[in-house]
Nucleic acid binder design. Structure first.
Lengths: 246, 246
DNA sequence: CGTTTCAATATGTATATACATAATCGCCGT
DNA sequence: ACGGCGATTATGTATATACATATTGAAACG
């Protein structure tokens, strides 16, 4: 018979995900040491009561990620470990500037309340529409622009922000004092300044800039997405690493 | 009829690989700009004359790598920051490139043994003079330069490197297999490409680049200082954080 | 006029199947 | 004892199919 039983239906994630995380867990916890042969595909097929394709996809992904190594006719093996983990502080621009011995001040450029569009939702990681706050501001070191800030605030998560003008105080410090964040993600890249950025930062269009974008969650709720644009000369990020176990 | 026609049989790689690399290429070359909707699965199915599963697997992998974003009912789109989703790990460029479905290869440009000068010692954090190795090489994604590597190796800490040519293997993987590192420091910034960098990476002078510098120690001894220069489009760093206690 | 409902559509995930390919094991003949 | 060769086995890659799910756009409704 050719009926397809869809097994899923558990509250959690997909079977694919479960296999992935189960095996990753065993490897990262050390339960399966490097060199250990993990069960054959057909054994996992039995264990998870699923097809070989499903197991195969999960194992292929682990192989691509470098966690395991696959050998025909022999099976799949736990690879020698790589290290990871970063420590890079949530940077407060005021502190950075003052550490340079310069006077800090902040200036709001724009403030706009509106309903979220698809792009906003992608940036914030929102699933449903809702209202949000869009804020643009400039951080100064002495008389020179130091960084441009462009920020989205999810008003469903932080309704109090609706009444804030953010004309004197930057949204970052304001949020930190109010919303306990549980997680953040940074994306760091280089970019050429476009017209409006160049104008705000008082640099030439096309000049290289460092862009740091941060998304913050509080208990699973997206809170804010902020983009800092620094002229290339004004900023270097520093991060220190130590290898995680062996 | 239920016969399965195996189409493969071309001298090159698999169909999966071909789809992956075709699309990666179009995106990295800029032919498909951010926001552009790439063809629907069923269209690619026709173009490559294959099943939806095959296309789906390739697109899913690109989504995981961060190159595209998939939206139900709407299609798949080129993402804003051309990125790959590897966390700011000890980044192995080969793995990054291969995750995009592109062929990786490395090419050594220069190799020089010399006594350290003041600048070298500053970069490595050395107090006394000594001999070191200066290596410059290019990492390729397909035919396109992906990153320029400039490296100093402290020969007092790694004397075995004296006899290595590093013409085929990059120094990174070589060192990892040999020297247990205990600490590393990263500096990240943006920079305009100068003449020589632009020439090596095949971009315009003045184009924005992301620069990642890493200094590595092994038991208090400086081992190596390496600088990776990425064209702005080819790379985004991603880092995740959770607050250290509260 | 706004809202609710519903069908169409594209992706997400799973199944069963088929055949290719690489590596290994064991048999066999010299 | 040794070298070669074929059978076995595990993974690699593709097909066709089935149904779930999210989102959009248009029709129906109050």
């Amino acid at each position: 018979m050719s009926t397809v039983e869809t097994v899923d239906a558990d509250g959690g994630g997909s079977l694919h995900q479960r296999i992935l995380s189960d095996i990753s867990e065993k490897i990262l916890s050390g339960a399966w040491a490097p060199g250990h042969r993990i069960p054959f595909e057909h054994e996992l097929t039995t264990e998870y009561n699923c097809s070989r394709m499903t197991v195969n996809k999960a194992l292929s992904q682990l192989a691509k990620a470098g966690l395991i190594e696959r050998r025909r006719r022999s099976g799949s093996f736990v690879r020698q470990p790589r290290s990871q983990a970063a420590v890079l502080e949530l940077h407060d621009i005021r502190i950075e500037v003052e550490a340079l011995g310069l006077a800090y001040h902040y200036e709001r450029l724009k403030r706009l309340k509106r309903r979220s569009n698809a792009e906003d939702r992608a940036l914030l990681g929102l699933s449903a529409a809702g209202s949000l706050l869009w804020i643009e501001g400039l951080h100064f070191a002495g008389e020179r622009p130091f960084a441009l800030e462009q920020r989205l605030i999810n008003l469903s998560a932080v309704p109090e922000a609706r009444d804030e003008e953010f004309s004197e105080i930057a949204a970052g410090p304001w949020l930190i004092g109010r919303v306990p964040w549980s997680e953040a993600e940074h994306r760091i890249r280089a970019m050429a300044a476009d017209e409006s950025v160049a104008d705000a930062l008082d640099i030439d269009p096309g000049a290289p800039c460092l862009v740091v974008e941060r998304r913050t969650w509080s208990a699973e709720h997206p809170v804010t997405h902020v983009r800092f644009v620094y002229p290339a000369e004004s900023h270097t990020l520093v991060a220190r690493f130590t290898p995680s176990q062996g």
